[in-house]
C-alpha cells in the first residue's frame, strides 16, 4: 500500500488515452500491481494502465502522482481531482485539470485543449502553453472556471476563460482571440499580447493587462474614479506570483468598463 506513485510512459499510445479518474486520492492506498491493473480507455478499448506505464512506488506519504514522458495523447490528466499533488514531467493532452476541486497540478510542458475547464478549486500550473478553450466550460455546459488558481507560464489559445465565473488566472505569455469572452466573473491577468475580440460580451470580472495594452473596443468605456483601494488588494495578490506581475503595486491603473453590450460590469485594468 502506498500513497505516492511514479508513472513513466513506456510507449506512445496509438490512440487517445483517457486518464480521467487517475487522481492522487483515488489511487492512494493501492499497491503498484493493483494500480497497473487499473483499466484505461484507449480509443474504444479498455486496457490495463500497465500496458502503457511503468508504475513504481514513491516514498512520499501524501497522495502524489508523478507522470513522466510525453503525455500529449493522454487526456483527462487530473480531471475531477479532489486533493493531493499531481506532477507531469512533459506535455499532456486535452482536459488537463478539468473540474479540479482541490490539490495541486504542475505540468512542466504544454497542455492541449480545454485545460482547467470548470476548474473549481486548487491550483493548476502549466510551464508551457495551453490550447484553445482553457478555463472555459466543458462542451455543453453553461459555466466555465469557477474557482481556484490557474497559472500559465507560456501562451494560451483562443476563447480562454469563456464563461468563466470565479477564480484567478495568470497568463505570463500571449493570449489568443476572444480572451475572456462571455466572462461572468473572476480575474484574468495577462502579461503578453492579446488577440482579437478580447472581452467579447464579458458581463463582469476583471482583466488585468500587465503587458502591451490591447486595442480598446467601442463597447468599453473609461471610468475616471479612484480605484487605488481595490487595486492595492488586487495588485498585491497578483504580484505574489512574480515575473511581469511583480511591479503591479506601483501602478495607478486606467479602468475601463464593459462589454457595454452585455451588462457592462466587467473591468479592464491597464497601465495608467
Amino acid at each position: 500500500m502506498s500513497a505516492a506513485f511514479h508513472l513513466r510512459l513506456r510507449t506512445q499510445p496509438a490512440l487517445r488515452l483517457d486518464l480521467a479518474g487517475i487522481t492522487p486520492t483515488a489511487m492512494a492506498g493501492q499497491d503498484a500491481a493493483a494500480f497497473a491493473r487499473r483499466p484505461l480507455w484507449h480509443g474504444n478499448e479498455a486496457l490495463p494502465l500497465g500496458e502503457f506505464f511503468d508504475v513504481r512506488v514513491l516514498a512520499d506519504e501524501a497522495p502524489t502522482l508523478v507522470f513522466e514522458g510525453d503525455l500529449g495523447r493522454c487526456d483527462g490528466v487530473g480531471r475531477a481531482m479532489d486533493g493531493g499533488s499531481l506532477r507531469v514531467e512533459g506535455d499532456v493532452g486535452d482536459y488537463l485539470g478539468a473540474q479540479l476541486s482541490a490539490g495541486e497540478i504542475r505540468v512542466s510542458g504544454s497542455a492541449g485543449l480545454l485545460a482547467a475547464c470548470e476548474l473549481a478549486g486548487g491550483r493548476l500550473e502549466v510551464e508551457g502553453d495551453v490550447g484553445d478553450h482553457a478555463a472555459s466550460a466543458l462542451p455543453g455546459d453553461m459555466d466555465g472556471m469557477r474557482g481556484g488558481l490557474f497559472i500559465v507560464r507560456g501562451n494560451v489559445g483562443a476563447r480562454f476563460g469563456d464563461r468563466m465565473r470565479r477564480g484567478t488566472v495568470l497568463i505570463f505569455g500571449n493570449a489568443g482571440d476572444f480572451l475572456a469572452s462571455r466572462m461572468v466573473a473572476g480575474t484574468i491577468a495577462v502579461a503578453g499580447e492579446t488577440g482579437a475580440h478580447c472581452g467579447y460580451a464579458m458581463r463582469r470580472g476583471s482583466l488585468v493587462f500587465a503587458g502591451p495594452p490591447p486595442a480598446i473596443p467601442a463597447t468599453f468605456a473609461a471610468t475616471g474614479h479612484d480605484i487605488r483601494v481595490f487595486w492595492a488588494l488586487l495588485a498585491r495578490s497578483l504580484a505574489a506570483h512574480g515575473g511581469p506581475f511583480e511591479g503591479l503595486a506601483g501602478w495607478r491603473p486606467q479602468r475601463l468598463v464593459g462589454d457595454l453590450s452585455a451588462d457592462g460590469k466587467g473591468e479592464w485594468l491597464l497601465p495608467g
Partner: peptide
Amino acid sequence: GWQISKMLDGVRY
C-alpha cells in the same frame, strides 16, 4: 445592483 464582488486569495470583498 451596481455593486461588484471580488474573491482574492480566498477572501470576498
